[in-house]
Design a binder for these strands. Structure first.
Ligand SMILES: [Zn+2]
Ligand SMILES: [Zn+2]
Ligand SMILES: [Zn+2]
Ligand SMILES: [Zn+2]
Lengths: 138, 138
DNA sequence: CCCACTATTGATAATGATTGTCGAAATCAG
DNA sequence: CTGATTTCGACAATCATTATCAATAGTGGG
């Protein structure tokens, strides 16, 4: 019942650094982003990176996918909040955004046909990017 | 250099029990299958359940998917080794097999267009099944 | 500019799923 | 039946992620 004043987030040095690091276009784990930040001179803590990434996912500024091994990978996307999917390199994480026009409607139909509600879908393509293939990392 | 004789797996009481338990049609975590086995009177160990499920996935007899939370879920499918996808209840795990006709070819095209090789794809639909919705578990 | 009030940080402990270890028990070919 | 090997299972170890909590640092007012 309390007015519940919106708690506006503070702009801290750590959050600036994390946003800056996310400037690239790869899917990486929280730990990987943390390593990169540290190697770039930041002293940000791991827990802070996890918290910031989670917040960014919630606000729609960052996309996350769960890898085959169960790790969560994060990436700042070009499409903003718009719904889209990815073709991601399994080796280096580099991703391009794709869309699957026919599928969005198809998913709803399938759900209806089986009486399932609140349908969500996951579509991810993975492969080995040209660079990784050339480097024999495939 | 050694002939490397194919080591055929032994049929143990535990493996029989696990295969029997998997007779149902839900996606469940290894821990969940283990609980069910124990509550049905089995004394099988958790590690054994993990090992058996992994082996069954490798042999193509069981499907696995990684849930949103990163848990791996297992299910014996009707389609055998054939490639297919699922519509799964996020609450109880019940799943139906679906196919996504045009997508298989589409995936390859997208991969080629971006120079990515060894393309794999994941398509999973999740929702709340009629039973779970009726029970207010949605 | 200084203070007080909190949100945030970060080192570390805790959690939870999964995998590794290793002596004991069980399978199965001979 | 018997011995060589596989498999079991209790438990420790690992790995990603989350919770703790005292210390630190934005922010808004004076
Ligand atoms: Zn790559
Ligand atoms: Zn979509
Ligand atoms: Zn259900
Ligand atoms: Zn497919």
């Amino acid at each position: 019942m309390s007015p519940d004043t919106a708690p506006r987030p503070r702009m801290t040095r750590q959050r600036r650094e994390i946003l800056d690091a996310l400037d690239t276009r790869d899917f990486r784990s929280a730990q990987s982003w943390h390593e990169r930040l540290r190697s770039d001179g930041s002293t940000v803590g791991l827990a802070t990176v996890y918290r910031a990434l989670q917040a960014l996912v919630d606000s729609g500024d960052v996309d996350s996918v769960v890898s085959e091994s169960g790790e969560t990978l994060y990436r700042r996307c070009e499409a903003g909040e718009e719904h889209h999917h990815h073709l991601r390199c399994r080796v280096c994480g580099k991703a391009v955004e794709i869309d699957v026009p026919e599928f969005e409607e198809f998913a709803r139909h399938i759900g209806d046909a089986h009486g399932y509600g609140d349908i969500r879908h996951t579509i991810e393509l993975t492969g080995v990017c040209p660079e990784c293939a050339a480097a024999g990392r495939g």
